[in-house]
Design a protein around this nucleic acid. Structure first.
Lengths: 186, 186
DNA sequence: ACCTGAACACCGTTCAAGT
DNA sequence: ACCTGAACACCGTTCAAGT
């Protein structure tokens, strides 16, 4: 045929993120992405073993883009900052939280933000178990909450209503941080 | 053709739950379910507006089956019991937590267990906001945790390894209950 | 009320072959 | 290394029509 457009793995991931914003998680199919790139569907399988691996790479890239330099303050502020940052990244991407939740439910991905939170907890004096459990608990809270938020927002848009305010996030976050605090002083 | 097998909505949901156990969430398609029932795919659309509504009904039915009578004890024990009960139901159904998470991420369902937890918190003296936020926080923890657990279990089965123990669930649960406790005494 | 039959517009994935 | 072309085995959903 005409020109043989050639891509690398990261090009495909970048384009997938743009496409996600345009058509949502439902519309993000291998065939749609391929035709968006001007390429045959089978070409994608040179870069990824399957759709699951592609979605995992997209989720990890979205999460990595949100990295900000850490200020050295209290561990509560540090952890709170990481969680708020994660929430903000998800809210910036259509179906962002649903994507990450789906990828995790399928068995992989999103290890990096969990490691960051576990690291902050270990630095604050938590033992290995508390650091691990605390990081996972915070992660589940953040992504569960934001997935709900985005779903309700989408439903509100569809029905013409308004979405509730986001103060619940701060309250739930404080709840978990307090529980962690009670264990860190002992 | 031959006999005209006729079903009601609940028959279809029941059969879908059995099929879920046999083929997993990936394999649970409208066409597969229809052929399992000995019926044309289009017949399902008489009972449900679409696949999303069918999955929502399946999730709610699974959650409803786990109801147990409540003992009157402390609110910590009461809430802990509800959460452990929810975890047990999910672990009994293949891809149970992934199903509920997916249904919620798509915007509906699973309201009943959240109402139960909010009710227990209100009974313990929480105001409306704390009851709502606390119930959601517990819900996100339970389903996020169990979704991870089932995914890792499936991965371990596939690779021949062993899954880690389930003590993290109790630790994370205690964390959140402690955070709630700090707000209930004030 | 519940189902059939047939169609429409898609999917994910594989594989031999090309450059 | 990266892509084409063509195929296989499926999807969800709609709609007129039957009983």
């Amino acid at each position: 045929m005409t020109t043989a457009t050639r891509y690398r793995r990261t090009d495909v991931v970048d384009r997938a993120i743009v496409l996600l914003g345009a058509v949502g998680l439902d519309g993000l199919s291998m065939r749609r992405l391929a035709s968006d790139l001007g390429v045959q569907p089978s070409a994608l399988y040179h870069h990824f073993a399957g759709k699951q691996e592609l979605l995992g790479a997209v989720a990890d890239e979205i999460l990595a883009r949100g990295r900000r330099p850490n200020e050295l303050v209290s561990w509560q502020a540090e952890l709170g900052l990481v969680c708020v940052e994660l929430r903000d990244i998800m809210l910036e991407h259509r179906d962002g939280a649903a994507l990450v939740s789906m990828v995790r439910a399928l068995g992989a991905g999103a290890e990096e933000p969990i490691r960051r939170m576990a690291g902050a907890l270990a630095f604050a004096g938590a033992d290995a178990e508390l650091a691990r459990v605390g990081a996972h608990t915070l992660f589940h809270f953040v992504f569960g909450h934001v997935a709900d938020e985005q779903a309700h927002r989408a439903a509100a848009v569809a029905s013409g209503g308004v979405a509730p305010a986001g103060t619940d996030f701060a309250v739930g976050l404080g709840l978990i941080l307090d529980g962690l605090g009670a264990r860190l002083v002992s």
